[in-house]
Every structure is written in structure tokens, then in C-alpha cells.
Amino acid sequence: MARYARVAGTLVEPVGDVWAAFSPTTGETVLLNHETASILEVLGAGADSTAEICAVLAADCGLDANSLAEVVETCWPRLLEAGLVRERLSGHAYV
């Protein structure tokens, strides 16, 4: 199971109806929708897999965790490309 970590130094702030996120890795800023910003927030709080994140989000918003899995899975490639998250290697500690 893939595990992810929010890149240290990532900045996420609300701007109007979306979120602006700055990646210290790429030096670039991207605009995120609420779902993607929520994933970053939950990642920062300790959850690190699709299943754990879905569980936290489901508890927060009263939805079925299984129904969120597809949404969360589609967000990972974009978050990785934007330099906002990185994949955790199993068995390795990370900062």
C-alpha cells in the first residue's frame, strides 16, 4: 500500500473559492480545489494512506469512506507532480 507525506515547508492558504499551495520543492504555486486541499491537511495531521485519509475525511464530513477512495486516488499524481507530497518508502523513516 502506498504511503505519502506532505512535503515539509508546503504552504496552503485559502484564496476565494480555491486554495493556493506553494511547494518548496518546485518553487511553484498551484491552485487546488477543496478536496485536494483537504487531503493535504489530513496528511499533515498524520494520516498517510488512501484508506486512512478516507477514514478521516469520512468522519469529518459524514460521507462513506469507500465513496471517497476514488477521489483521493486521483489526487495523488497531481499532488506528487506539484511537489506538495512525496511517496514514503516503506521501512524508512522520514522527516
Binding site: V15, G16, D17, V18, A20, T29, L31
Partner: peptide
């Protein structure tokens, strides 16, 4: 909206 202004500036 703020997001439009953010994009226009940044």
C-alpha cells in the same frame, strides 16, 4: 474573487 486576483498578480 480572491483567487482571480491571486492568479493575476502571482
Amino acid at each position: 474573487a480572491e483567487n482571480v486576483v491571486f492568479a493575476a498578480l502571482a
